[in-house]
Structures are given as structure tokens and as C-alpha cells.
Design a protein around this nucleic acid. Sequence first.
DNA 1: GACCCAAGTCAACCATGATTGACATCTTGC
DNA 2: GCAAGATGTCAATCATGGTTGACTTGGGTC
Lengths: 198, 198
Amino acid sequence: MSATTTLSRERAAPRRRDAEATRAAILEAAKTHFARSGYDHAALRDIAADAGCDVALIKRYFGGKDALFVEALKASFHPDRLREWDRRAFPRDAAIMLANAAPIGEEPTHSFQFLLRTATSPTTAPLLNLAMQERFLAPIRDWLGGEDAPARARVMAAVYIGFLVERLIREKPLRGRERDVFIDRVTAIFEAMIAPSP
Amino acid sequence: MSATTTLSRERAAPRRRDAEATRAAILEAAKTHFARSGYDHAALRDIAADAGCDVALIKRYFGGKDALFVEALKASFHPDRLREWDRRAFPRDAAIMLANAAPIGEEPTHSFQFLLRTATSPTTAPLLNLAMQERFLAPIRDWLGGEDAPARARVMAAVYIGFLVERLIREKPLRGRERDVFIDRVTAIFEAMIAPSP
DNA sequence: GACCCAAGTCAACCATGATTGACATCTTGC
DNA sequence: GCAAGATGTCAATCATGGTTGACTTGGGTC
């Protein structure tokens, strides 16, 4: 939803036929559906229905399911968020975030569910390499900086993904001592990863 | 492949019509296909072809795709392997294994790829929790032992899964210094996880 | 040898879902 | 107003793949 883009406000005409808006609506719906259901189980008809338009428009605006997926994949990552994170606070903040329950459909998980679904499907795994490089590994590498940033970024990305997966399949929330131990251990791991090479 | 099970050798008759053998062949083929392609992309016709029989036999012997998948899932885990791992050598051995390229269909990864692919499909995702608990978390917990084993097992499983995902989507093999740093860091993480609580 | 049942084969059936082209309708420029 | 192109709709088409039932074949028993 939220198909009404704010751009070109000078054109007061509330034209109902707005290619740009429909395209954006399709992309938005696609992000949600792909993240929730994965590539295979996301039906273009459902996406179109959510976007409030016909399936055929997807072909017109994106070309096909593959192309739509790639666009949605690109649009689903917001690596800029990383820059806002404080280096000192990150390990524990991230650990606590991971210890808490993952609300289904909430924003932060969104893109990572996407990631997971993409990584584990043979169809889409190849597509992920590029996106990972550009949008995930590179930002982490820059954020880390220092010696051996590439290898360390790779390790950090892997660990982070692992915890996201764990949270995704966690059956019940962590409590009490288990939660505390979990947080402490995860914090230690993140701290070790951020630490520059000796 | 390897449809000739060794059991019942006393019955010298090389009967070509062997329900037990075909059933085993189907299961074996299913394990491979499901692990490599995931639930959705594994076609029963392909599995049957690999097993050297007709699709209809799958229905006869297993009932349907779902049931076959469950059987293959159960048969794909060998959590007992964990016991063989030496506590001291594990961190570095595991790190090196993860640094190397993942040969599709090789034994060690096999069951874990299976696990990961399971997460892809909404059909099979519910099965994942159970399998994770019984066949992954519990063995690790026992293997770790000591104080706070549950929380530590959770952390360790998550990290391990993360690295498996990373390896799945890794575009080219690690080399040189990047590989060395990767191994060192991963080793350190595993060592930290194995270490008992202070 | 005749017979019966398990084991295996074959050819449909059916649902799903992406793709496509023909068609309708709105918007805009003249 | 009116043509033309952009935008949106509709109903096939096509491929895939799981499911199913009728059929054939083999192999052991009487």
C-alpha cells in the first residue's frame, strides 16, 4: 500500500492512472511476499492483488518474475543503517536484539527473512551473490575498516545471518538465565569479530 | 545409486523385483535430491528416475511427496557423528572445513544442506523446529555438556548455520591471507563457544 | 501348467502459476 | 473534440509436476 508517492506534488492532478505509483506498489508488495514466502511460493497473482492491479502489469513494468525478484532484493536492503550503529554499543545491542523475539513481518527482520529465503533456494542463490557483495559485505567491510576487513566482514556477516536464522526458527522466547548467557556469549563473539587483527 | 543393500545376503536369489531394495533406492535418491534442490525443486519424477523406477512407486511405498520428505529428513541426520569429534581439534577442523569450498552432495554437508533447504519452503518449515531440536540442538547440548549447555548449544548451532549459509552462497573459494584470517577468526569463535561458563 | 498377488509400468488427470496477446479505457496534446 | 499513446483488464495458453487408476509382468505356489 501507500501507493501515493510524494514526488511531483506540483502536478496537482490526482490522476488515477499512475504508472510510477503502480510500479512502486508492485515492488512493495513483492518485497513483502518474497520475504514471507520465498521466491517459489510467492505468486505473482497475489503480489498483483496486493498492489491493486493486474498480473500483466508486472510483466510490463518488470519483465518477469526473475527481474521483479532482483529488484525487490536490491530494494530490500538498507545497508546505510549500519553506519548509525555505534561501534562500542553494537555487540551488546545486537545481542539483545537477537535474544528478543522476532515479530513476524516487522521491519528489521523483513530484509533478512528475504535474505534467508534467497540463500536457501537454488533458484535464487546465484542472484544473492551480487546483492550480498554490494549491499551486505561491502558496507560491513567499510564499517569495520582496518586490517583484513574483507575476511572479518565475511565472518561477521555469516555469524549474523546464523543468529537471524536461529531467531527465525526459535520456538519460544528466551528467558531467565538462558537469555542472559545467550546475550553474554553473543556479545563476546561480536566483540571478538569487531576487534582488529593483532 | 547404490541400490543394492547388503542385507539378506543369505537369500542368494538375485530377484530383480525387490520391493525393499527399490524402496531403499528411492529413499537414497530422495535424500540427495532434497538436499541439493530443496523440497520444492526436487521433482518426484527425477527422484524416481535416479532410483531406476517409476513415479507411481513412490506413491505406493511412501504415500506422497510430503511423507517421502519426512522419511528422507529423518534418514538424513547422523547426529552421532558429533560424538566422534575431538573437543580440542574441533574448532580449527570445523573452521578449515568451512573455509573450503562446499562440494555439493558430499557427505558432511549433506544433512545440513538438507536442514537449510528445509527452511525455504513454508510446507516444510514447520518440520524444521522439531528436527532442529531433536537432531541438532540436543546433540550439541550433550556434546558441550557442563554449565549452561542449552544456551551455549543455541549459540553454537546458530553460528554454525550462519557459516553454512555463507558457504552456500560464497561465489569463489577463499585464498591466501583472506582464507587464513577467516580460519583464525572462526577458530577463535568456536573455541570461545566451547569454553565453559566462567 | 494354471493361478494369484506383489512389483512395476503407462498414460492420463488435475491444479497451480507464469507468460502472453488481444482488448478496453483513460490521459494528454493538438 | 479527437486521435494516439499510455495504462489497465481479461481470458486464454503453456509448462510443470504431483496424483491417480488401469494395466502388464514376474515369480512363487498349488
